[in-house]
Design a protein around this nucleic acid. Sequence first.
DNA 1: ATCCCGAGGG
DNA 2: CCCTCTGGAT
Length: 221
Amino acid sequence: MEGVGCPKEGQKAKKRRALAILEALKAAYPGAKTELKHNSPFQLLVATVLSAQATDKSVNEATPALFARFPDAKALAEARPEEVEPYIRRIGLYRTKARNLVALAKRLVEAHGGEVPRDKRALMALPGVGWKTATVVLGAAFGVPGIAVDTHVARLAQRLCLSEAKSPEKIGADLERLFPKEDWVFAHHALVLHGRYVCTARKPRCPACPLAPHCPSRREG
DNA sequence: ATCCCGAGGG
DNA sequence: CCCTCTGGAT
């Protein structure tokens, strides 16, 4: 599938193909945005941290009760990790995430007035927040342009032969070179949705894929 | 490279 | 059973 290597293609043709893919994504996923439930940048940050190696569905089943008990950074900062664990146990990686979230909330209160900083380095300095989570929160909460690369975006970039890089940061840089800046945040969300529902890891639904005409890895069935 | 980790799909 | 899920820290 994606391991067979991409056909040789000039940069110009590749960029044209990327723009065709972008148009198809706009048609298929108009107004694509995060599916994580949240009512504030803080809640989006928490939900995004929880979403690491977990499904959005499982996160959305846990966060309503979690946010009812700990609605903001101040409330979460005063909790102990063991108090948080029961709310997120079913998500997986729950001990690490509970510990990170409490430490994260403390740092928000102590260093950022309880608010989510709009700065990538400040976000990445928070426990449990790496490049991907920081890029997602900046884009979804504050409209800062950027293409975060998660498992879905990485897989699709490879299958679509839009990047042959391996690290998320390099894949993101490749995609940002191919798409107009004003479409970066949309492209991220649309690629995630497409990866989740159509171009799945195990059994991609190529016959139903609107990107198939532009995809070197497409298969019949 | 390895660990963290539960739940759902195939 | 094995693989995957909007990764991050060590």
